[in-house]
């Protein structure tokens, strides 16, 4: 159960001067769900694309290792990466309206995904596609295979996408905010479905999101990203109950809840820095009430039991 499936070590993905991802390390165990949390531009999606080797140019991985299956795949050839993608690792995107090709039928898009990695007949591939659709809860899958994406609702499309991701029972799936574009009720259904499916297949899941509520329901562990770095990570219940990094605390406080009815919503003052001009030292320091001179030095990762954080003045108090 606890074998490591994927280990990212000191990953650096830069777009010219912009250090979108700058020294990210984490690992995912088999069957584990990791929540990768952060606001827009924190580098969480770029981290995901780096792992599957699909960073858009001019972005390039300039340093670090991504160890999968015992080897560093940052040095793999294009063809080796292609053979891994979709078979051993899959990715799901944010907007199901945009993920499926609008002019190709669902069966075409699923059969090609099967045949990209296995030498099977069209009929067999089609049967696999139909079973996969049935598995993700799409009614009358045989008929729906003939349909085009625009004939599905958003939630159904995301189910199709999930079915495609699961076709080859990959070792891990990277889900890049797959429920953000959906209605809340559909969101809950998809979350439950996803949770069930990865548990059944013992698939690891990296769930990229800015939604702490989703992470608290779904993830085993959480890693909080800020300006291209992980600032805090640990078991999800610990981190959300007692954040050590002031940014994590700010993020948690920003979530509207029923307990704060009538109060002004809290927010983190200031703006996230541009990854093209990061301050030396802690990137969060300019927005942080606890910051002092020490924060202008480079901040290492401090271990704290099963957790890690990147703050010289971690929050001590117990939060309720």
């Amino acid at each position: 159960m606890n074998a490591t499936v994927l280990e990212v070590r000191d990953l650096r993905t830069h777009f010219g001067q912009a250090k979108a991802v700058d020294g990210v390390s984490f690992s995912v165990a088999r069957g584990e769900v990791l929540g990768l949390v952060g606001e827009s531009g924190s580098g969480k999606s770029v981290t995901g694309f780096s792992i599957i080797g699909l960073v858009d140019p001019p972005g390039t991985i300039v340093g670090g290792q991504i160890v999968f299956d015992g080897r560093d795949i940052t040095s793999s050839s294009r063809e080796e990466m292609r053979a891994l993608r979709g078979r051993r690792m899959a990715m799901i995107f944010q907007d199901p309206m945009m993920t499926l090709n609008p002019v190709l039928r669902i069966d075409t898009q699923m059969i090609e995904a099967v045949q990209a990695h296995e030498n099977v007949s069209r009929a067999d591939a089609r049967a696999r596609a139909r079973d996969a659709l049935g598995m993700v809860g799409i009614p009358s899958p045989d008929e729906r295979l003939q349909a085009y994406p625009h004939q599905f609702s958003g939630g159904m499309r995301q189910r199709v996408v999930i079915a495609i991701a699961l076709l080859h029972r990959p070792d891990f799936i990277i889900a890049d905010e797959p429920t953000t574009a959906l209605d809340v009720t559909i969101q809950a259904q998809i979350l439950a479905e996803m949770q069930k499916l990865v548990a059944q297949n013992n698939t690891s899941l990296i769930w990229i999101t800015h939604d702490l509520a989703v992470v608290s329901r779904l993830a085993d562990r959480i890693a909080v990203m800020y300006a291209g770095r992980i600032v805090e990570s640990g078991p999800v219940s610990d981190v959300l109950a007692r954040p050590l990094h002031p940014y994590t605390a700010g993020l948690i406080d920003s979530v509207p809840s029923r307990n704060q009815r009538g109060e002004r919503l809290r927010q983190i003052p200031g703006m996230a820095p541009s990854v093209a001009r990061l301050p030396t030292g802690c990137a969060f320091a300019p927005r942080c009430a606890r910051a002092d001179a020490m924060c202008t030095q480079a901040v290492p990762l401090f271990p704290a039991g099963p957790r890690e954080h990147r703050c010289v003045h971690p929050l001590p108090e117990l939060r309720v």
Partner: peptide, 13 residues
């Protein structure tokens, strides 16, 4: 567009 990325993410040639 995302569907091109997704096609690549499926491991298509």
């Amino acid at each position: 567009l995302d569907f091109v990325k997704f096609a690549r993410a499926k491991g298509l040639k």
